[in-house]
Protein backbone atom coordinates (compact mmCIF):
# COMPACT_ATOMS: atom_id res chain seq x y z
CA UNK A 1 0.00 0.00 0.00
CA UNK A 2 1.00 3.59 -0.50
CA UNK A 3 2.29 5.63 2.37
CA UNK A 4 -0.45 6.99 4.66
CA UNK A 5 0.21 10.68 4.58
CA UNK A 6 2.17 11.34 1.45
CA UNK A 7 0.38 11.97 -1.77
CA UNK A 8 1.09 10.21 -5.03
CA UNK A 9 0.37 10.61 -8.69
CA UNK A 10 -1.87 8.10 -10.45
CA UNK A 11 -1.05 6.36 -13.70
CA UNK A 12 -3.29 8.83 -15.53
CA UNK A 13 -1.53 11.77 -13.94
CA UNK A 14 -3.98 12.88 -11.23
CA UNK A 15 -2.60 14.11 -7.93
CA UNK A 16 -3.83 12.15 -4.91
CA UNK A 17 -3.22 13.81 -1.56
CA UNK A 18 -3.05 12.64 2.05
CA UNK A 19 -5.91 11.24 4.11
CA UNK A 20 -8.81 13.71 4.27
CA UNK A 21 -11.28 11.50 6.07
CA UNK A 22 -10.82 8.51 8.26
CA UNK A 23 -13.41 6.10 9.61
CA UNK A 24 -12.20 4.29 12.72
CA UNK A 25 -13.93 1.15 14.02
CA UNK A 26 -17.38 2.23 12.90
CA UNK A 27 -20.28 0.16 14.16
CA UNK A 28 -23.88 1.08 13.40
CA UNK A 29 -26.88 -0.68 14.90
CA UNK A 30 -30.58 -0.23 14.24
CA UNK A 31 -32.16 -1.92 17.22
CA UNK A 32 -31.17 -5.54 16.69
CA UNK A 33 -29.90 -5.10 13.13
CA UNK A 34 -26.18 -4.51 12.84
CA UNK A 35 -25.78 -2.58 9.59
CA UNK A 36 -22.05 -1.90 10.00
CA UNK A 37 -19.65 -4.00 12.05
CA UNK A 38 -16.37 -2.48 13.20
CA UNK A 39 -15.22 -1.04 9.89
CA UNK A 40 -12.16 1.17 9.41
CA UNK A 41 -10.92 2.78 6.22
CA UNK A 42 -9.69 6.09 4.98
CA UNK A 43 -10.37 8.44 2.10
CA UNK A 44 -7.57 10.38 0.45
CA UNK A 45 -7.86 13.84 -0.94
CA UNK A 46 -8.61 13.83 -4.65
CA UNK A 47 -9.24 10.13 -5.04
CA UNK A 48 -12.25 8.22 -6.29
CA UNK A 49 -13.08 5.75 -3.55
CA UNK A 50 -15.63 3.07 -4.31
CA UNK A 51 -17.71 1.12 -1.81
CA UNK A 52 -19.08 -2.11 -3.20
CA UNK A 53 -20.93 -5.10 -1.84
CA UNK A 54 -24.12 -7.13 -2.28
CA UNK A 55 -27.58 -5.73 -1.47
CA UNK A 56 -28.00 -4.97 2.20
CA UNK A 57 -24.26 -5.05 2.84
CA UNK A 58 -24.44 -1.68 4.60
CA UNK A 59 -23.04 0.59 1.88
CA UNK A 60 -25.70 3.27 2.04
CA UNK A 61 -25.54 3.17 5.81
CA UNK A 62 -21.82 3.83 5.58
CA UNK A 63 -22.41 6.79 3.29
CA UNK A 64 -24.94 8.11 5.77
CA UNK A 65 -22.34 7.87 8.51
CA UNK A 66 -19.86 9.81 6.38
CA UNK A 67 -22.47 12.47 5.58
CA UNK A 68 -23.38 12.78 9.25
CA UNK A 69 -26.94 11.65 8.69
CA UNK A 70 -26.41 8.63 10.96
CA UNK A 71 -24.35 8.89 14.11
CA UNK A 72 -22.37 5.65 14.50
CA UNK A 73 -23.18 3.55 17.55
CA UNK A 74 -19.46 3.06 18.08
CA UNK A 75 -16.34 4.40 16.43
CA UNK A 76 -15.01 7.72 15.31
CA UNK A 77 -14.92 9.83 12.18
CA UNK A 78 -11.92 12.07 11.53
CA UNK A 79 -12.17 14.88 8.99
CA UNK A 80 -8.92 16.62 8.05
CA UNK A 81 -7.30 15.02 11.06
CA UNK A 82 -9.86 16.31 13.55
CA UNK A 83 -12.37 14.08 15.28
CA UNK A 84 -15.87 14.99 14.23
CA UNK A 85 -18.29 15.28 17.13
CA UNK A 86 -21.97 14.53 16.76
CA UNK A 87 -23.23 16.99 14.16
CA UNK A 88 -26.47 17.84 12.48
CA UNK A 89 -26.56 16.99 8.77
CA UNK A 90 -26.77 20.66 7.78
CA UNK A 91 -23.61 21.36 9.74
CA UNK A 92 -21.80 18.58 7.89
CA UNK A 93 -22.94 20.16 4.62
CA UNK A 94 -21.19 23.36 5.67
CA UNK A 95 -17.94 21.42 6.09
CA UNK A 96 -18.00 20.80 2.36
CA UNK A 97 -19.56 17.34 2.12
CA UNK A 98 -22.30 16.93 -0.48
CA UNK A 99 -24.14 13.84 -1.63
CA UNK A 100 -26.67 12.28 -3.94
CA UNK A 101 -29.18 9.66 -2.89
CA UNK A 102 -29.88 6.11 -3.96
CA UNK A 103 -33.55 7.05 -4.32
CA UNK A 104 -33.44 10.45 -5.94
CA UNK A 105 -34.16 13.18 -3.41
CA UNK A 106 -34.86 16.28 -5.48
CA UNK A 107 -37.33 19.02 -4.64
CA UNK A 108 -40.16 18.08 -6.96
CA UNK A 109 -42.09 21.33 -6.73
CA UNK A 110 -39.14 23.40 -7.92
CA UNK A 111 -37.55 23.95 -11.32
CA UNK A 112 -34.24 22.35 -12.30
CA UNK A 113 -32.55 25.72 -11.89
CA UNK A 114 -33.97 26.28 -8.40
CA UNK A 115 -33.01 22.77 -7.36
CA UNK A 116 -29.43 23.36 -8.39
CA UNK A 117 -29.46 26.81 -6.79
CA UNK A 118 -30.32 25.15 -3.46
CA UNK A 119 -26.91 23.53 -3.70
CA UNK A 120 -25.40 27.02 -3.31
CA UNK A 121 -27.16 27.68 -0.01
CA UNK A 122 -24.07 27.09 2.08
CA UNK A 123 -22.29 29.81 0.08
CA UNK A 124 -25.06 32.41 0.27
CA UNK A 125 -24.85 34.58 3.35
CA UNK A 126 -27.54 37.23 2.92
CA UNK A 127 -30.13 36.98 5.68
CA UNK A 128 -33.87 37.45 5.75
CA UNK A 129 -33.79 41.25 5.98
CA UNK A 130 -31.46 41.74 3.05
CA UNK A 131 -33.47 39.23 1.04
CA UNK A 132 -36.51 41.39 1.63
CA UNK A 133 -34.67 44.41 0.21
CA UNK A 134 -33.34 42.54 -2.83
CA UNK A 135 -31.84 45.23 -5.12
CA UNK A 136 -31.08 47.72 -2.36
CA UNK A 137 -29.35 45.32 -0.01
CA UNK A 138 -27.17 43.30 -2.34
CA UNK A 139 -29.24 40.12 -2.20
CA UNK A 140 -29.83 40.39 -5.94
CA UNK A 141 -26.11 40.73 -6.60
CA UNK A 142 -25.40 37.66 -4.50
CA UNK A 143 -28.12 35.76 -6.31
CA UNK A 144 -26.62 36.61 -9.70
CA UNK A 145 -23.06 35.73 -8.71
CA UNK A 146 -24.26 32.34 -7.57
CA UNK A 147 -26.45 31.95 -10.60
CA UNK A 148 -23.33 32.32 -12.74
CA UNK A 149 -21.64 29.46 -10.93
CA UNK A 150 -24.74 27.34 -11.32
CA UNK A 151 -24.88 28.10 -15.03
CA UNK A 152 -21.33 26.75 -15.37
CA UNK A 153 -22.42 23.49 -13.79
CA UNK A 154 -25.49 23.40 -16.02
CA UNK A 155 -23.21 23.75 -19.05
CA UNK A 156 -20.80 21.19 -17.67
CA UNK A 157 -23.53 18.57 -17.22
CA UNK A 158 -25.20 19.51 -20.49
CA UNK A 159 -28.65 20.25 -19.10
CA UNK A 160 -29.12 23.76 -20.50
CA UNK A 161 -32.37 22.94 -22.24
CA UNK A 162 -34.20 21.76 -19.11
CA UNK A 163 -33.24 24.68 -16.84
CA UNK A 164 -36.78 25.91 -16.30
CA UNK A 165 -38.52 22.53 -16.30
CA UNK A 166 -40.14 21.43 -13.04
CA UNK A 167 -38.05 18.53 -11.77
CA UNK A 168 -41.06 16.29 -11.29
CA UNK A 169 -41.54 16.11 -15.08
CA UNK A 170 -38.04 14.83 -15.88
CA UNK A 171 -37.18 11.26 -16.81
CA UNK A 172 -35.17 9.22 -14.33
CA UNK A 173 -31.75 9.57 -15.95
CA UNK A 174 -31.98 13.35 -16.10
CA UNK A 175 -33.14 13.52 -12.50
CA UNK A 176 -29.97 11.71 -11.48
CA UNK A 177 -27.98 14.26 -13.42
CA UNK A 178 -29.79 17.19 -11.81
CA UNK A 179 -29.13 15.70 -8.41
CA UNK A 180 -25.44 15.50 -9.26
CA UNK A 181 -25.60 19.13 -10.40
CA UNK A 182 -27.13 20.18 -7.10
CA UNK A 183 -24.38 18.40 -5.17
CA UNK A 184 -21.70 19.93 -7.41
CA UNK A 185 -23.15 23.40 -6.97
CA UNK A 186 -22.05 23.22 -3.35
CA UNK A 187 -18.44 23.00 -4.59
CA UNK A 188 -17.88 20.21 -2.09
CA UNK A 189 -14.51 18.94 -0.86
CA UNK A 190 -15.99 15.44 -0.72
CA UNK A 191 -18.78 14.24 -2.97
CA UNK A 192 -20.74 11.15 -1.94
CA UNK A 193 -22.58 9.35 -4.71
CA UNK A 194 -25.01 6.55 -3.82
CA UNK A 195 -25.48 4.42 -6.94
CA UNK A 196 -25.40 7.31 -9.41
CA UNK A 197 -25.90 4.95 -12.33
CA UNK A 198 -28.54 2.59 -11.00
CA UNK A 199 -31.28 2.01 -13.52
CA UNK A 200 -29.48 3.72 -16.38
CA UNK A 201 -28.88 2.39 -19.86
CA UNK A 202 -25.37 1.92 -21.23
CA UNK A 203 -25.23 5.30 -22.88
CA UNK A 204 -26.43 7.15 -19.80
CA UNK A 205 -23.91 5.23 -17.72
CA UNK A 206 -21.11 6.29 -20.03
CA UNK A 207 -22.19 9.90 -19.75
CA UNK A 208 -22.36 9.70 -15.99
CA UNK A 209 -18.93 8.02 -15.76
CA UNK A 210 -17.47 10.76 -17.88
CA UNK A 211 -19.02 13.45 -15.63
CA UNK A 212 -17.67 11.79 -12.50
CA UNK A 213 -14.17 11.57 -13.94
CA UNK A 214 -14.34 15.17 -15.18
CA UNK A 215 -15.51 16.47 -11.80
CA UNK A 216 -12.67 14.68 -10.08
CA UNK A 217 -10.16 15.82 -12.65
CA UNK A 218 -11.23 19.44 -13.11
CA UNK A 219 -12.17 20.42 -9.57
CA UNK A 220 -10.00 17.94 -7.68
CA UNK A 221 -13.12 16.80 -5.79
CA UNK A 222 -12.73 13.72 -3.62
CA UNK A 223 -15.42 11.23 -4.57
CA UNK A 224 -16.89 8.34 -2.63
CA UNK A 225 -18.99 6.17 -4.89
CA UNK A 226 -21.31 3.26 -4.30
CA UNK A 227 -21.92 1.26 -7.44
CA UNK A 228 -23.07 -2.22 -8.41
CA UNK A 229 -21.75 -2.25 -11.95
CA UNK A 230 -18.32 -3.85 -11.52
CA UNK A 231 -17.06 -2.63 -14.88
CA UNK A 232 -17.78 0.95 -13.91
CA UNK A 233 -16.21 0.54 -10.48
CA UNK A 234 -13.04 -0.98 -11.85
CA UNK A 235 -12.74 1.75 -14.48
CA UNK A 236 -13.44 4.73 -12.28
CA UNK A 237 -12.06 4.11 -8.86
CA UNK A 238 -8.60 4.44 -7.39
CA UNK A 239 -9.37 2.30 -4.36
CA UNK A 240 -12.27 0.08 -3.40
CA UNK A 241 -13.77 -0.95 -0.05
CA UNK A 242 -15.73 -4.20 -0.21
CA UNK A 243 -18.50 -4.80 2.32
CA UNK A 244 -20.55 -7.89 3.03
CA UNK A 245 -23.10 -8.31 5.82
CA UNK A 246 -21.88 -5.11 7.44
CA UNK A 247 -18.25 -6.23 7.53
CA UNK A 248 -15.30 -5.05 5.50
CA UNK A 249 -13.91 -7.95 3.53
CA UNK A 250 -11.55 -6.15 1.19
CA UNK A 251 -9.83 -2.82 0.66
CA UNK A 252 -7.36 -1.80 -2.01
CA UNK A 253 -6.89 -0.95 -5.66
CA UNK A 254 -9.33 -2.50 -8.12
CA UNK A 255 -6.72 -5.08 -9.08
CA UNK A 256 -5.99 -6.01 -5.49
CA UNK A 257 -9.66 -6.35 -4.71
CA UNK A 258 -10.32 -8.39 -7.81
CA UNK A 259 -7.75 -10.98 -6.80
CA UNK A 260 -8.77 -11.09 -3.13
CA UNK A 261 -10.12 -14.58 -2.41
CA UNK A 262 -12.61 -13.42 0.26
CA UNK A 263 -14.07 -10.96 -2.16
CA UNK A 264 -14.32 -13.50 -4.93
CA UNK A 265 -16.06 -15.94 -2.61
CA UNK A 266 -18.42 -13.52 -0.97
CA UNK A 267 -19.22 -11.14 -3.70
CA UNK A 268 -17.98 -11.78 -7.19
CA UNK A 269 -19.10 -15.37 -6.96
CA UNK A 270 -22.62 -14.35 -6.16
CA UNK A 271 -24.83 -13.71 -9.12
CA UNK A 272 -25.80 -10.08 -9.08
CA UNK A 273 -27.84 -7.62 -11.02
Amino acid sequence: MKDMNEGYVTADGRQIGGVIMEMKNITLRFGGVVAIKDISFDIREGEIRAIIGPNGAGKSSMLNVISGFYIPTEGEVFYKGIKRGPMKPYQVARLGIARTFQNIALFDGMSVLDNIMTGRLTHMKKGLMSQAGWWWTGAAAEEHENREKVEKIIDFLEIQNIRKTPVGRLPYGLKKRVELARALAAEPKILLLDEPMAGMNVEEKEDMSRFILDVNDEFGTTIVLIEHDMGVVMDLSDRVVVMDYGKKIGDGTPDEVRSNQDVIDAYLGVAHD
Binding site: S67, F69, K88, P89, Y90, V92, A93, R94, A98, R99, F101, A105, L106, F107, D108, G109, M110, D114, M117, T118, G119, L121, T122, R182, A183, A186
Partner: peptide, 17 residues
Protein backbone atom coordinates in the same frame (compact mmCIF):
# COMPACT_ATOMS: atom_id res chain seq x y z
CA UNK B 1 -35.73 28.10 -1.82
CA UNK B 2 -35.05 26.99 1.74
CA UNK B 3 -38.77 27.08 2.50
CA UNK B 4 -39.62 25.11 -0.62
CA UNK B 5 -36.82 22.62 0.03
CA UNK B 6 -38.24 21.93 3.50
CA UNK B 7 -41.70 21.62 1.97
CA UNK B 8 -40.69 19.23 -0.80
CA UNK B 9 -38.30 16.96 1.12
CA UNK B 10 -37.11 17.96 4.54
CA UNK B 11 -34.44 15.25 4.87
CA UNK B 12 -32.73 16.17 1.61
CA UNK B 13 -33.02 19.84 2.53
CA UNK B 14 -31.15 19.24 5.73
CA UNK B 15 -28.43 17.33 3.96
CA UNK B 16 -27.74 20.15 1.52
CA UNK B 17 -27.31 22.54 4.43
Amino acid sequence: RKWMAIRDMDIAAEIIG
